[in-house]
């Protein structure tokens, strides 16, 4: 097989567990494609990317640093350019259209029509690990170890009618319209939504980059990055 071209997958490296994502991606392979995985801190680095991962970290820190270092606008433009983006934990918060339990001044990218609640399970003592069955969307992945750390959940799937102005909610200032439907990929037994997809945008409450298994990353490369070209 000849390699068509090298696809650049960026991992936003403002704060948080970005190295873990890069290390997981490096173990993946997709036939006839070559990848390069890069840390993204500047607009120049972002513009070279075919896809972006927003890692776990502190969502307030990531948002504030992006504003101060001039990266917020380029990130919003990246969302509009319709390239694949995956947010994990804090990244899910940053990628959403609305957040609750956010902080004043915490800006978000508005890439997915979801409302995300920060720290929905509570504090660190409520963090947990659980094996989940993802075989409905990733073939044969029946027993995937997920780690939830002070994790957010998708508290609401938004539709056009829900444009109310609630003081407890932070709204994205991005005018991007994601014209694909939101698919719920996984719900916990208690009903909490912890994985969603909308077109080529993916959001997870948990941290596949902390498991020993790279199949979730493999799926992202195959189904989102390669399929979008």
């Amino acid at each position: 097989m000849t390699i068509e071209k090298t696809l650049v997958v960026g991992v936003l490296a403002l704060q948080g567990a970005f190295i873990e994502h890069i290390n997981h991606f490096k173990q993946c392979q997709v036939e006839s494609y070559a990848f390069s995985f890069v840390e993204v801190r500047t607009e120049e680095e972002l513009n070279k990317c075919h896809a972006l991962v927003i890692p776990g970290g502190e969502s307030t820190a990531i948002s504030l640093i992006s504003q101060r270092t001039g990266l917020l606008k380029p990130l919003m433009d990246f969302v509009k350019s319709n390239k694949p983006i995956w947010g994990t934990c804090a990244g899910l918060i940053f990628l959403s259209k609305q957040i609750i339990n956010g902080k004043p001044g915490q800006q978000i990218l508005g890439g997915m029509d979801i409302q995300v609640e920060r720290n929905a399970f509570g504090r660190q003592l409520d963090s947990f690990q659980q094996n989940l069955d993802f075989s409905s969307f990733i073939p044969e992945l029946t027993d995937f170890p997920t780690v939830f750390i002070r994790a957010p959940v998708i508290s609401k799937i938004l539709n056009d009618e829900q444009q109310s102005d609630d003081a407890d909610v932070i709204y994205s200032k991005n005018d991007y319209v994601n014209d694909r439907p939101v698919e719920v990929l996984h719900k916990l037994d208690n009903g909490f939504i912890v994985a969603v997809r909308q077109g080529n945008k993916l959001g997870t409450s948990f941290h596949p980059e902390l498991s020993e298994n790279h199949k979730f990353h493999q799926w992202f490369l195959q189904d989102f990055v390669v399929n979008s070209i």
């Binding site: 704060q15 948080g16 502190e58 941290h207 902390l210």
Partner: peptide, 9 residues
């Protein structure tokens, strides 16, 4: 894992 999330911070 929580400490990993604090990295770069």
């Amino acid at each position: 894992g929580l400490a990993q999330m604090l990295k770069g911070g």
